[in-house]
Design a protein around this nucleic acid. Structure first.
Length: 372
DNA sequence: AATACGGGGCG
DNA sequence: CGCCCAGTATT
């Protein structure tokens, strides 16, 4: 690694200012109530790519439902996925579930405390490994997330592009030089807390910053230029046709997605990608017939249109209402369920939006009936 | 090194 | 609305 200019940097004083600020100002968070490595682990997985405010209610519910490693290891995948519904990046919870079973079986239910072992767990990468080892076990391991890169890029004036995968290693080496041996847990948490509360991406509160005197970007007036972060590319757009289908008993047809890829193992209303050549409704009818042997009478017009933006793609879904005319052959992936049971299945947000729109339009039809 | 993988908040 | 945020696995 390039020799970073930290020779004239007062490490001890920086650690003290940072950690004492954290002791004064840290937020009370449910996963900070004790040092249970299981709780730290679950919280860190939830916090990947996800804001604290979003995570808090999920964490509480998750801990109530699965208070221990054993409880989670014994749960079914559907149950676990349901607890994660709406949080996104669902492979996180499938990996967590698998890893917890691994800990239960091979480590006697105790989260391992070495970098080698903890890094082998599914879903535990360099950041999460460092977070568990430092926060739960007090080991001086770096835990470099986006906050840490932003904070350190500013403090030490590091002009590395933090969007590049190679950047993380640079910052890990920096943390190894800076980390407090007395309190690695608070040191790492303080860097992240500072990034979340003070050293924010836009208009950071430098005047409130406990380590302003150590900050090169502040001194040099480059706060708004750091960190350097290149932009990603734009999303691919996908047009989909979906249908809320009722059988003769008013039950709703739902489909379980494949166990790999986007939204793996989540439930959805049947949907198919729009064709560029065939008329819109025909694609859906053909799909239902060819794949599920379902004959359906679809209404001519879609009742709602849903747009959902993912990181790497955009779904535009036209949603039709229809009745199933023949007998549905139910399988593990295909079910008809009563409307009041729909919400017991784990649906991705775009299909939660479909269900919401469906109920709204059903309601408005009723109002029309009464008026008419 | 590049891509797949959700969802929410803010202006 | 568009823009921004943020780790791991896979290829």
């Amino acid at each position: 690694m390039k020799n970073l200019p930290i020779d004239d940097f007062d490490i001890k004083s920086f650690q003290d200012d940072l950690i004492s600020w954290f002791e004064r100002e840290q937020r009370k968070l449910p996963w900070r109530e004790d040092r249970d490595p299981y709780k730290i682990w679950v919280s860190e997985i939830m916090l990947q790519q996800t804001r604290v405010d979003t995570v808090i209610p999920y964490f509480r519910r998750f801990m109530e439902k699965f208070p221990t490693i054993e409880a989670l290891a014994d749960a079914s995948e559907d149950e676990v996925l349901k607890a994660w519904e709406g949080l996104g990046y669902y492979s996180r919870v499938r990996n967590l579930h698998a890893a917890v079973k691994e800990v239960e079986e091979h480590y006697g239910g105790t989260v391992p405390d070495t970098p080698e072992e903890v890094s082998k767990l599914k879903g535990v990468g360099p950041y999460t490994a460092g977070a568990i080892l430092s926060i739960a076990y007090g080991l001086p391991e770096p835990a470099v997330d986006g906050n840490v890169m932003r904070v350190l890029a500013r403090i030490l004036s590091i002009w590395e592009d933090i969007a590049k995968p190679s950047a993380r290693k640079v910052f890990e080496e920096v943390v190894r030089k800076l980390i407090s041996r007395e309190n690695p847990s608070f040191f790492n948490q303080a860097l992240m807390e500072l990034g979340a509360l003070v050293c924010t991406p836009k208009s950071p509160s430098c005047l409130l910053c406990p380590v302003r005197e150590h900050c090169r970007a502040f001194r040099e007036g480059t706060i708004d230029e750091l960190p350097v972060k290149s932009k990603g590319k734009k999303q691919k757009q996908i047009r989909l046709q979906a249908a809320v289908l009722e059988d003769e008993d008013g039950r709703i047809l739902i489909h379980k997605r494949p166990d790999k890829g986007l939204l793996a193992n989540m439930w959805e209303f049947v949907q198919v990608e729009e064709s560029t050549v065939l008329p819109a409704r025909q694609v859906l009818k053909d799909y239902l017939g060819d794949v599920f042997k379902i004959e359906a009478a679809l209404e001519t017009e879609h009742f709602t249109e849903i747009r959902h933006v993912f990181t790497h793609l955009i779904w535009d879904i036209r949603v039709y209402h229809g009745k199933i005319l023949n007998q549905v052959q139910e399988t593990n992936e295909l079910k008809c369920v009563p409307p009041d049971e729909i919400e017991t299945f784990a649906f991705p947000v775009p299909h939660q939006k479909i269900w919401k729109a469906f109920r709204e339009q059903a309601k408005s039809e009723k109002v029309k009936d009464i008026k008419g």
